[in-house]
Design a protein around this nucleic acid. Structure first.
Lengths: 300, 300
DNA sequence: ATAATGTCTTTTATCGTGAAAAAACATTTT
DNA sequence: AAAATGTTTTTTCACGATAAAAGACATTAT
């Protein structure tokens, strides 16, 4: 089967959404930059759009003939990369099944179950290993360390060290730095979300990540910035899994963020320290409360 | 070509070294545990030892017939795993050649040059990426970030945060903990090395790693422990590369370690803090001095 | 002359395959 | 019966092959 053309399908769908806005399309290189794909892929997209009567395409003249219909889109599930498919599948087993710590992970079995080649599974496991949830036995199988209380504590310990440092570095940034404008924009987004919390509370997760990444970037340290990948991954799945009091939790977190942003804008290191500590403490509590004492997450 | 039998060859060589000590060999499972390989491999080893007249093997009776000769060993270079071969080859290019930051890395070219399959190179690069020296462009090539001054500073910043924490955790360990005996043993090894520094200075690197890993383990945090892999990798190649004043550098480091060990044994947190800071500062200096201002390491 | 399009080449992503090594199962020995 | 040896099955590791996607080069249009 070789390789799926999900890059093309995903870019095609995104291109469809661009279509109905402005009549006429930019040049091939411009489109490529816009969609984050090569010209080769852009041309495949344009070819299909012409075939299905969406556009008229003759060299540099690209005229939009009609608005895209739901049937024009590729199914969502065909736009995921193999890595995403494997990750989701693996995390589901990890969180939702009786995934005991110490259990061994079988590449071949995983590959068969997901319906992919062993190579892809191997590469996924290697990439995933940096999250500290699995470990390789030399010349042998992987061992699941489990999403345990100890894991959550070790993770949050590092998170707190890194974020306090980054926040301190943040306030030391010069007034001209672009981060202050970014921070203002994020503050505004927080206020809007707070106002419409009743309907949009599930949009917090994404805002949360952008906010913390902005702060971590101030550390100017790749290891700190990269470590946020671990946190983001864990919180991503944790949010998907633990929906208990989601709205209330997010409401609290938004207020904590606003206080934290206020402290950053005051440029007073001790205020920042206090606000940061407070928020991280409650984030830790939230994570810990989803892990029953001495065991991992249980099925629904 | 499929897969090389380096596991077997390496275990065979190690088994040869065990041979001349005690006449007679333990049972297959015991040998497996001793060599860290499966019984399948143990049996291949025994089969060859019988074939080459090294032992007489009949079920559980294994008699050593003669001492191993140099010709009995497999050549050293055949005992390395593919991952080791690729890493060495890659690091040589990185440190010894004009490896400019921003340069792109070509999997296929690397594979051809080293004479291995692309899969192995891909897996190596994925594993290696956690060291922060390379970065992947989605659906495209890897980019070399370079062994620069910035890298060294970011690395040592984290190292210092983690080690100060670990050292503080170390002194808080109860008297009964086994680490104190480990520390005593390491202290003794340091003293011996200090006495014979003229001839054995190149053995320091390995002792250094064991010492710091012992301290990091006291953190009881997998992210801290795992981070030492990054440091160990960098220092390993750094030591191989930068031989300038090696003896003198190591002599100084040993004395710093001894002071550090003394501080730990005193169990006085502030003394530990001072000794740890001092050693880490000079370790940072050593690393930085090998990286010319604004550029990476230069060829010999 | 610059920037687009058209065409061709190279590289990446993924699979199936086969040998090495591990692991599981069956049989024998102490 | 426990622990070894003997045998078979399964899994890991690494390769070459192939389609998707990127990238390079040649050509044409503004």
């Amino acid at each position: 089967m070789s390789k799926s053309n999900n890059v093309y399908k995903d870019a095609f769908n995104r291109c469809l959404r661009l279509l109905d806005e402005s009549k006429g399309l930019p040049s091939e290189p411009e489109l490529g930059a816009l969609l984050g794909v090569s010209r080769t892929t852009v041309r495949s997209i344009l070819a299909r759009m012409e075939e299905t009567g969406l556009i008229d395409w003759n060299k540099r003249n690209k005229t939009v003939l009609r608005a895209p219909r739901p049937g024009d889109f590729f199914p969502e599930e065909e736009t995921d990369s193999l890595a995403e498919i494997i990750e989701r599948s693996f995390m589901r087993r990890l969180l939702a099944g009786g995934a005991e710590a110490g259990m061994q992970i079988n590449e071949l079995e995983l590959a068969r179950e997901i319906g992919v080649g062993t190579t892809s599974v191997r590469e996924f496991l290697i990439r995933f290993s940096r999250f500290g949830l699995i470990e390789k036995r030399r010349n042998s199988h992987w061992v699941l360390k489990g999403f345990t209380r100890a894991f959550a504590l070790e993770l949050t310990e590092i998170r707190e060290i890194f974020e306090l440092r980054s926040a301190a570095a943040f306030v030391a940034l010069p007034q001209e730095s672009a981060v202050w404008a970014d921070l203002d924009r994020l503050e505004e987004e927080h206020r809007q979300l707070a106002d419409e919390i009743a309907t949009r509370f599930n949009e917090f997760s994404e805002l949360d990540e952008r906010f913390h990444r902005l702060i971590h970037r101030a550390s100017h340290n790749r290891f700190i910035v990269d470590f946020y990948d671990v946190i983001a991954m864990i919180f991503h799945y944790h949010y998907q899994w633990n929906k208990a009091q989601e709205r209330q939790r997010n409401e609290v977190a938004i207020q904590e963020h606003l206080a934290y942003i206020g402290a950053l804008k005051s440029r007073d290191p001790s205020k920042v320290d206090v606000a940061c500590r407070k928020h991280l403490k409650s984030a830790r509590q939230t994570l810990l409360s989803s892990i029953p004492e001495g065991r991992q997450a249980q099925p629904a």
